[in-house]
Design a binder for these strands. Structure first.
Lengths: 124, 124
DNA sequence: TAGATTCTTCTACAAACGTAGAAAGAGGTG
DNA sequence: CACCTCTTTCTACGTTTGTAGAAGAATCTA
C-alpha cells in the first residue's frame, strides 16, 4: 500500500472521522488546500481502486470509509523508506534518525519514551 | 530533492564510488536488477536534470558524479516522510518508530546509540 | 582500415499522478 | 411542478516514472 502525498491528505481527513462523504472530507482538509471538489472525488475513487478506502451509497451520495488503518499505513511508509533509502537496514536508519534528525531535546524525549516502553514491557 | 525508488538504486551505486560511468554503475547494481543499459542512461539523464548528479564527458563517454550527498538525501527523505505521514510532528514519528517498528533488541541498540551520542555531546 | 563493440542521443509508450471541467441525475423547496 | 443545488460519472490533459528500442557516433582491434 503506497500512498502519495495527496492521498495521505485525504486519508488523514478520513481517519479523523468516518464514514464520511466527499464533502465532509473536503471540509476537513487544511485551510490552504485548494483542491476542486471533483479532484477530491477523483482521488477517493482512486483510493477505492487501491482498496485503501471503501465506498458505499447512502441515497445518491457516496460514503467512504478507510480500509487500512493509519498505523499500518505509517508502518509501511516507514518500512518503505528504510527499504529504499537505507538498504533495508534498520540500525543505520535508527542511528541516522537519532543523530541527525533530532535536537537534544527530542533525543531526551525519545529516551523517556523508550524507558516507558521498557518499563511496561517488563510488567507484561 | 525527491528521489524515487529506482533513483535511489542508481544513486546508491554512484555514491559507492565516483566519478563513475553508466557502465560501471550498471555493474554495481544488485544482481537481481534487470534494467537495460539505456534505462540506466535515461535515469541518469533525469537525475542530471534534477541536479542530483553531474555529467561530464571524458572522450565520448559520460562520467557521472553525485551532486547531493547521501546523508542529505536520507535526511530529506526522512523529513518528507514525517511531513506527509506524521503531519510534520517529529515526536509521534519517534514514538511510532520506537514502539511499533522496533524489536526490543533494536530498542536496546537505539538506547545505546543515544547514550553514546549523549556522552559525546557532553564532551563537546 | 573494416568490422565489432560500446556509447550517446532520440524517441516512445504505458501506467501513475495531479488536477479539474462538463454534463447528467437526484433531491429539496417555493 | 419548475428550479436550484449538490452529487456523481465521464472525460481529459499535462507531468512524472518506469522501461527500453533504434539509429547514429566514437573507439577499439585484428
Amino acid at each position: 500500500m503506497r500512498l502519495t502525498k495527496s492521498e495521505w491528505q485525504i486519508m488523514k481527513a478520513l481517519w479523523e472521522s468516518h464514514p464520511a462523504t466527499a464533502r465532509e472530507i473536503s471540509e476537513r482538509l487544511p485551510e490552504d488546500t485548494t483542491w476542486a471538489y471533483t479532484t477530491i472525488k477523483t482521488m477517493l475513487t482512486r483510493l477505492v481502486g487501491k482498496k485503501a478506502v471503501s465506498e458505499r451509497k447512502r441515497a445518491n451520495t457516496s460514503v467512504y470509509e478507510p480500509l487500512i488503518e493509519r498505523d499500518d499505513a505509517q508502518r509501511s511508509a516507514v518500512a518503505t523508506l528504510i527499504e529504499s533509502a537505507f538498504d533495508g537496514a534498520v540500525e543505520p536508519f535508527l542511528g541516522f534518525v537519532a543523530n541527525s534528525t533530532l535536537s537534544s531535546k527530542e533525543r531526551k524525549r525519545l529516551l523517556e519514551m523508550l524507558d516507558r516502553e521498557d518499563a511496561s514491557a517488563k510488567e507484561r
